[in-house]
Design a protein around this nucleic acid. Sequence first.
DNA 1: TTGACGGACGATAATAATTATCGTTCAATA
DNA 2: TATTGAACGATAATTATTATCGTCCGTCAA
Lengths: 144, 144
Amino acid sequence: MEMATDIFRDLCQKHGIAMTHQRQVLFETLQSMYGHPSPEDVYVRVKEKVPAISLATVYKNIHLFVDSGLLREVSVHHGTLRVETNQHPHHHLICSECNQITDIDQGELGFTPGRTKLANGFKVERYAVDVIGICPQCQAKQTN
Amino acid sequence: MEMATDIFRDLCQKHGIAMTHQRQVLFETLQSMYGHPSPEDVYVRVKEKVPAISLATVYKNIHLFVDSGLLREVSVHHGTLRVETNQHPHHHLICSECNQITDIDQGELGFTPGRTKLANGFKVERYAVDVIGICPQCQAKQTN
DNA sequence: TTGACGGACGATAATAATTATCGTTCAATA
DNA sequence: TATTGAACGATAATTATTATCGTCCGTCAA
Ligand SMILES: [Mn+2]
Ligand SMILES: [Mn+2]
Ligand SMILES: [Zn+2]
Ligand SMILES: [Zn+2]
């Protein structure tokens, strides 16, 4: 039987990152959390186990985990406020490599988001679909 | 024939906000812009017409426009980094009133986002659907 | 047309979130 | 177990955004 540390060590190896005590506690803490916590939220929880940890370390490792595919962040969008200038109903292509956002018309999606009321009583105003993937330019770069 | 100022005045009246010169220029500048500009981007452009305008005014009025439904922002998500703790494929309900984010399983959506390659050569990794509307709690508050 | 008044403006200080820097410590591996 | 580069913690710096506040202007009633 393999202990937790060895399991996490393997996971790190698989993703090509070094294993540290802080990373293990951070990752396991996240697995025990619910919802969509902020780095600060995570920091508070991790500190219970590793009181000396720095908030900067939490930020650095969340980004490391996201970049190496161990974790996912909620929104891939720009971290800053952006105004929509396209008035027509449309959705977005988001390149996970360069974060470029491109408009795409509803018709080109290949499916149609419905407009019904959902089971739990949530009143739907509209659907916003993000198609996440790799843009043509970044595909070209990768094939070099 | 009605001039631009009168048209914008009517628009403001319809949305219950006061008409000012700065607001008119800001709004018309935005209509002439393409894509998903940041407040700073907009500020630079508006300054060409109203050199004395303050960046704070741009922020204040973008928010005013968004709140009164004249404009839309690209992402309704939290303005800060959030970690996804739910490993299962799922989407999000976002309340436009309180900004609460709730997970929703793909099956409950009522339609299935496809996984094909899109026309323009964009390579799809996954779909992230945001259902934007009013959560049950906020609906209750509104009915008071 | 003219005040009066409340809201909007501009300047700028303050705050919040995130990132950079740097000296110290630790994990990998030979 | 010694070496070494990467990771850590403390903290300064940066960036984006918001709050404050005195002045100015748009609205509306007279
Ligand atoms: Mn768009
Ligand atoms: Mn989620
Ligand atoms: Zn790209
Ligand atoms: Zn709500």
